[in-house]
């Protein structure tokens, strides 16, 4: 631990990636540049690298996930790490072993990188204090999902050539969305302008003080934007608790061509997935190869996660610590 603290790589001087908060624009740019190189590598026949050879990566998911977990798994494997997937159902944790016990147990197996997703905000930060390896937040409650924001930024940058000065609308369930929070922080840091669009019941209080413009009318919110970023709305939140019904939600906040027409003619559409087709996004829009970046986002996801793993691994100790040194 101490040797890792001593020399942090100037490329990305952090031991963990817990959120976008705390990253500088140059940290973000460094990760995106590195990710660009991995995009090329992933398109080759031989996709295998060796930066993480000998390293052990654990994917610890307390919340079910298909794409994020497989994306991290593939990213680790392509860099040569040994990857172990652990899905811990939240019920078994509730029953007995505390989160911290789980972390301490895993830490004793000397992993180098742990990727954690947890349903509670702050849980990943809590775990990072209890382990001696690098921790990557793969989503904690409604707090942050930094690799999603990075992959979104990479996708945008590759298509638009820049982030600075773009107008981005994030639409839907802002209140419960870690994707929204990480994206707001990242896009603001990189000089884009951010709008949030959704019904008042799905907006956190004080959201405007995060440096965003708030719109409840989607057509107005999409006026002149370069990027429309849709968020997933959990179905159980659409039956009267936050919004009256799916039908009403789609009518006012579902993205279809009629609403998209208010955005710039070359505006692009994004969604972190998994999509509720016909609820927050019309199928035709989602599948429109000229407008939708959704497939590309998945591709960028692997590259960004390789970049993050690579960058953090440069700050891991290289020599074996003395016996017991990592306990």
């Amino acid at each position: 631990m101490t040797s890792a603290d001593k020399q942090l790589s100037p490329l990305f001087p952090h031991r963990h990636l817990l959120g976008i908060e705390g990253l500088s624009p140059s940290d973000i740019t460094a990760l995106l540049d590195l990710a660009d190189t991995y995009v090329e590598q992933n398109r080759q026949v031989d996709k295998k690298g060796s930066v993480l050879r000998g390293r052990t990566q654990i994917n610890l998911f307390f919340e079910a996930s298909t794409r994020t977990q497989s994306s991290f798994e593939l990213a680790g494997k392509r860099l040569g790490a040994d990857v172990m997937n652990m899905s811990v159902s939240s019920s078994s944790v509730k029953k007995g072993e505390t989160l911290i016990d789980t972390a301490v147990t895993l830490n004793a197996m000397h992993p180098d990188l742990i990727i954690i997703r947890h349903q509670n905000s702050g849980a990943v930060e809590l775990l990072s204090q209890k382990v001696s390896c690098s921790v990557i937040n793969a989503g904690d409650g409604a707090h942050e999902h930094p690799t999603q924001a990075l992959l979104d930024a990479l996708t945008i940058r590759r298509r638009k050539g820049k982030l600075q000065g773009l107008l981005v609308a994030i639409c839907g369930d802002i209140l419960h969305s870690r994707v929204a929070r990480s994206n707001i922080l990242l896009l603001n840091a990189m000089g884009a302008r951010v709008r949030v669009v959704g019904p008042p019941t799905l907006m956190p209080s004080g959201i405007e003080r995060l440096g965003v413009e708030v719109f409840h009318d989607m057509k107005k919110g999409l006026e002149g934007v370069d990027i429309v970023m849709m968020l997933r709305l959990q179905l159980e939140r659409m039956t009267g608790s936050y919004v009256p019904s799916q039908r009403e939600y789609f009518h006012f906040y579902g993205l279809d061509y009629a609403k998209l027409a208010h955005a710039k003619p070359d505006a692009l559409v994004m969604h972190p997935g998994p999509m509720n087709r016909g609820v927050e996004i019309d199928s035709a829009v989602a599948d429109d190869i000229d407008r939708s970046l959704i497939r590309e986002q998945v591709e960028m996801g692997v590259a960004v996660r390789m970049a993050v793993l690579d960058a953090l691994s440069r700050n891991l100790p290289n020599e074996l610590p003395l016996a017991g040194g990592r306990a």
Partner: peptide, 15 residues
């Protein structure tokens, strides 16, 4: 407390 900070931390607020 329900506030900007709760929004940033992603914690549910008590108004």
């Amino acid at each position: 407390n329900e506030s900007e900070l709760a929004g940033r931390l992603g914690l549910a607020g008590i108004p």
